[in-house]
Amino acid sequence: MSSADIPQGTGTPAPEKRLGLVRRAWQFVLDLIDVLLKPSSIFGLGVLVLAGFVAGVIFWGGFNTALEITNTEKFCTGCHEMKDNVFAELKTTVHFSNRSGVRASCPDCHVPHNWTDKIARKMQASKEVWGHLFGSINTREKFTDRRLELALHEWARFKANDSLECRNCHSAQSMDITKQSPRAVEAHQRFLFTGEKTCIDCHKGIAHHLPDMRGVPGWQ
C-alpha cells in the first residue's frame, strides 16, 4: 500500500495507528514466546506430554481422514470437469463393469497407495483447484484442447513409476498366460516379462477416450 492509498483529510493520521497495531502484535508474540519457554507452573510435565500426544493423534487422524475423503470417486467427480468428461467415458469401459465385478475407481489409478507418494500427489492436486477456479478446462472444448497435455502428464507418471497403480491390481507375476488371448500372450512375453516395456506403453486409453494422438510414439 502506498501513501496515496491513505484517505486524505481525516482527523487521525493513519500511519501512526498502524504502527500501534504492529507494536501490539509484536508484544503478543513476545508474550507468547515467554509463556512457551517458561516451565509450566499449572500443568505437570506428564499432563503436557499426554496432551501433546492426544493433539498429535487428532491432527494425524484428521489429516488421514481428510486424505481418505479426498481419495474417493465421489470427491473426484464432485467437479463437473471430471464428471462430464473422464468419468462419463470411464463408464463404458471394462474398468467400470466386467465379469469379475471389480470396479476401478479414480484414486485406484490416479493416486498412489503409498503414503509419501500420496502426499506428493495431493500437493500437485492443488494445481487442479487453481484450474477449477480459473476454468482451465471448464468446457468440453477447452478440455479436448488441453487433453493431450493432461494425458502426457499421466503417461509420464505411469512411465516413471513403472505403472505402479496398474500393478496394484494386475501383477505380471500372477498373470496366467495360458488363460490369456494369443495376442496378449505374445506381447506380454516379449515385452512385459522382459521388462522392456510397461503397461502404459501399450495400454493407453483403457479408461478414457484418447487425446489427439498425432505425434505420440507408436500412433499416427
Binding site: S181, R183, E186, H209, W219
Partner: peptide, 29 residues
C-alpha cells in the same frame, strides 16, 4: 480374427493402426 472391444477409431486416434501400420508390424506381429 480378434476382439476389438474398446478400440477407439475416430478423429483423435486409430487403435488399429497402432498395430497394423507399416512401422508397427515388427513389434505387433
Amino acid at each position: 480374427p480378434h476382439s476389438i472391444d474398446g478400440y477407439q477409431v475416430d478423429m483423435q486416434g486409430n487403435k488399429c493402426l497402432s498395430c497394423h501400420a507399416r512401422a508397427r508390424t515388427a513389434e505387433s506381429k
